[in-house]
Design a protein around this nucleic acid. Sequence first.
DNA 1: GTGGTCTAGACCACA
DNA 2: GTGGTCTAGACCACA
Lengths: 134, 134, 134, 134
Amino acid sequence: MIEFRIDRRSGVATYLQIGQQVKDALRLGLLNVGDRLPTAKEVVAATAVNPNTVLRAYQELGREGLVESRPGAGTFVCRSLAAPAMAENMPLRSGLDAWMAEARSAGLSREDVEALVKLALDKGFGNRRGSDTQ
Amino acid sequence: MIEFRIDRRSGVATYLQIGQQVKDALRLGLLNVGDRLPTAKEVVAATAVNPNTVLRAYQELGREGLVESRPGAGTFVCRSLAAPAMAENMPLRSGLDAWMAEARSAGLSREDVEALVKLALDKGFGNRRGSDTQ
Amino acid sequence: MIEFRIDRRSGVATYLQIGQQVKDALRLGLLNVGDRLPTAKEVVAATAVNPNTVLRAYQELGREGLVESRPGAGTFVCRSLAAPAMAENMPLRSGLDAWMAEARSAGLSREDVEALVKLALDKGFGNRRGSDTQ
Amino acid sequence: MIEFRIDRRSGVATYLQIGQQVKDALRLGLLNVGDRLPTAKEVVAATAVNPNTVLRAYQELGREGLVESRPGAGTFVCRSLAAPAMAENMPLRSGLDAWMAEARSAGLSREDVEALVKLALDKGFGNRRGSDTQ
DNA sequence: GTGGTCTAGACCACA
DNA sequence: GTGGTCTAGACCACA
């Protein structure tokens, strides 16, 4: 079962953080079609956010067709975001892990790496509207 | 001269976006001690934010000792965040660029890469979120 | 036998959707006096709603005098809503079909047509909304 | 300035009704890029809904890229939905009005027409998930 | 003043 | 019990 980690200092709305974490899990194959998301109650117990905030996140995911809420039963994944290349990407993934280890042993901080990644993402994939990798 | 890109949809406060972009530029060596930040007026012309918002971002950077306001002259960088390893990191940086190119040609989207990077960052540097330091 | 199609995303209560679809079928002459509605069990098999939800819809139709429940036998239509003009409306109906075809070939989407129809309905029959009869 | 009409008996959530009415107005060319939507306060004065409900509707439109909220200034249309065919569709539109008049003088009720239109829409444009023209 | 987010609580639909 | 909607009120960001 996915567990949400809320960063209250990031300035990003809680419901957006939850929605983003679900989408990331879908892309990474950590959540798959048919999986149940934790109930609002369960999330509340684990993260101390208000149940309405969880429901709002789930409703937006529902509107995007990613999950479906069945009152009385729960909220279920109904569409995956896992790209084919993400499934068989062991070399790519381990290449990234290796790079991270290298960066760390070179003395870079997490913030340094995040800055480098933003720059490389913009070079490799074009600018997004803003520049927050968050 | 650094140019700010504001994403009004991200939900992140504008002044935080500006501050973050300055810090990223300091880490990447795109801004260095002595460099002048754009005036509030210049930022307003480029991004349509309110001058007070720019000033607030600069004040917070000032409080962290990163920039200094010289009335009549402008706001200047007075401390760098460039780690030693970031200066001589050509191989690391180009390694990241190469990885991005590989990811892209494997068919991954920007969002896919962002999800992979978050996971790898957490593995390599420990979780940032979940601290709930509120 | 009428088949119900439930849109879980519409935000309209399931029992209201079922009731509306029965009434529409009565108006269109697709259901007539004496016809049997599907049993709750049959509806459940076809649409995955709860049998109680079907029963609630049928009970409301019963309260309006449109259907009658005969224990052991099923639920039967006992009053039609087919206006006289709906019976002999071949020209009207085909006129509407022709208009739809024209709209479609003009490049209009279903949503475009729905917007036009709402406007034309309000012009031709007066506003339904705005009564706020709460 | 667009005026919202809320039907509290329809079973459709208020924020969905507001969002749908904005989209319809965009399709019909009644709202255009740059137009300002009424503030939450203005809508409250006109329709007695809670300001949060209005904001929620606007936020969803914002997420779909149709409007942009500028705190302190208001909420503005930033993308139209007017199909080219909707602009120069005088004959189509008047054809629909004529059909409505015909239907009315044949004795059809608004509900009869709505049932006919749903059927014709499904024939002309394919079934939607559910069947509520609403 | 205008918009954005969150909370607490109420009420309903559905299982 | 689970999810969906709405309200009232609080607090903050931005103009």
